[in-house]
Design a protein around this nucleic acid. Structure first.
Length: 450
RNA sequence: GGAGAGGUGGGUGAGUGGCUGAAACCAGUUCCCUGCUAAGGAACCGUACGAGCAAUCGUACCGAGGGUUCGAAUCCCUCCCUCUCCGCCA
């Protein structure tokens, strides 16, 4: 492990796409893109994505005729080459055949070069197309257009002026942003004492809940992954600037979420029907460069370059994925309920949804310090979008064929934000923090941080 | 990091230039026979992309990428990974 230096510097050169990758990068059923182009353009518009139909159709038409042409030439050449062996064995003159092959070869390699270029172009084009939003996804530009689905709990009334987590944390000596920025950079935090312990307790509590009550299998995964893995879940090629990249000879990236390694656990595999569903839970740090969010949430721990998250991932049969999204969202909600934190569930509108998602619910927890509901979990069904990119399939007993699985992911929950929520919701007039009942066993019975 | 040995289809494992998309065996599917807590026989049995209403056909794939050749799983180069021993380390 030497030569891997995480760098805050952004490397913006677009990753190269190889010929072989162009096929696997298809986000949608390629036949569907070809046959239902208009429908797809309409749906993508909900995500504020303009699908250039004319460009696509033109590229696709050229690709098709060129591929047929190339393969025909190849086929001819193969036939000649095979007959050379036979002619030789029969003692015939092979020179005329050699000449023919020569000619075919020249034409073929020319056509091949052109095809390669075209496929690269097409691959780049397709790799940048987001997943189709579900028909039920509300139209809209940003979070203001999200639709509230339900609320749980009631924000507490304080008989004093509630403080935010920064004031609380610094007063308790448990949060230190200045030191963190000296050690690293802005948007990092140092935690100490009871606050650091509660942070750990939260992660432990979540892991235990999901493994013992919700049927998830705990997984430990790499925090650095390669480019293929990030293509698989959709972070690449479009969002490289959001990632931290190492500078080794084999570039690796710090994971922006455990969704990336956890979902890719099934990349390039064919699962048997009996193995599904797969439910995985991972606790990992997450690293995000937060490019393009310079002015937002600069205060406190809301938006960090490094934060911990407990992530839920499910790999399911296609017919089960809608129900799985509801279940998974419920599993994340359960954490908030047990912590007795008021929250609401919103269905994301097209403009606020991620690249890979077909449907997303966000969980927003009430933060008294901001007098606002803030995102603490995002639960998505990506359907077969990631599965196609990473070649994750199952053998469908009805058809006997390998078909893409459906993948889902959701935070269960973001640990740093959960900590903030507990601090702000459980604060006392004297600035101390009550420990939620469910966390006490994880904190040696401690019932107050002061 | 050093030395050595390897990477072939679901598994085991043949295959050193053409008739090998790949023997054989195991597993699996279907059928036949027989009949009893199991044996025997036959056929089928990889993936992706493309053409076609379809039957079917074409192309590619033997760790990855490149090269030699009319032709490469087979020869050459680079890289990756696995295993064994040594070193180092948590």
């Amino acid at each position: 492990m030497r030569g891997y230096n995480a760098s805050l510097r952004l490397q913006t050169a677009p990753p190269r796409i190889h010929l072989k990758q162009t096929i696997r990068i298809l986000m949608l059923d390629p036949k569907r893109v070809r046959t239902q182009t208009e429908e797809i353009a309409r749906r993508l518009a909900v995500k504020n994505f303009t699908f250039d139909m004319a460009a696509f159709e033109q590229l696709e038409e050229r690709r098709r005729s060129l591929q047929v042409h190339t393969e025909t030439l190849q086929s001819e050449q193969n036939k000649r080459s095979k007959s050379i062996g036979k002619a030789k064995a029969a003692g015939e003159d092979i020179q005329p055949l050699l000449d023919e092959v020569e000619n075919l070869k020249a034409r073929r390699s020319e056509a091949e070069d052109e095809l390669r270029k075209l496929q690269e172009e097409l691959g780049n084009f397709l790799a940048g197309i987001p997943n189709l939003p579900d028909e039920t996804v509300p139209a809209g530009a940003d979070e203001n257009d999200n639709v509230e689905v339900r609320r749980w709990g009631t924000p507490a009334e304080f008989d004093f002026e509630p403080q935010d987590h920064v004031a609380l944390g610094e007063a308790l000596g448990g949060m230190d942003f200045e030191t963190a920025s000296r050690l690293a950079h802005s948007r990092f935090a140092v935690m100490r004492g009871g606050i650091a312990r509660m942070h750990r307790a939260l992660a432990q509590f979540m892991l235990d809940l999901h493994t013992s009550e919700h049927g998830y299998t705990e997984a430990y995964v790499p925090y650095l992954v390669n480019a293929d893995t990030l293509y698989g879940t959709g972070q690449l090629p479009k969002f490289e600037e959001d990632l931290f990249k190492t500078s080794g000879e084999t570039p690796l990236y710090l994971i922006p979420t455990a969704e990336v390694p956890a979902t890719n656990l099934v990349s390039n595999t064919i699962l048997e029907a009996a193995e599904l569903p797969l439910q995985l839970v991972c606790h990992t740090p997450c690293f995000r460069s937060e490019a393009g969010s310079y002015g937002r949430d600069t205060r406190g721990m809301i938006r960090q370059h490094q934060f911990d998250k407990v992530e839920l991932v499910q790999i399911v049969r296609p017919q089960d994925s809608e129900a799985a999204l509801e279940a998974l969202t419920g599993h994340a909600e359960k954490v908030l309920q047990l912590l007795e934190l008021p929250y609401r569930v919103v269905a994301l509108c097209g403009g606020d949804m991620g690249f890979s998602a077909a449907r997303t619910y966000d969980l927003e927890v009430w933060l008294p310090g901001q007098q606002k509901y803030r995102e603490i979990s995002s639960c998505s069904n990506t359907r077969d979008f990631q599965a196609r990119r990473m070649h994750a399939r199952w053998r469908n007993p009805e058809t006997g064929k390998p078909e893409p699985v459906h993948t889902l992911n959701g935070s269960g929950l973001a640990v740093g934000r959960a900590l903030i929520a507990v601090m702000e919701n459980y604060q006392q007039a004297d600035g101390s923090i009550r420990v939620p009942d469910v966390l006490k066993p994880y904190m040696g019975g401690l019932d107050r941080i002061q």
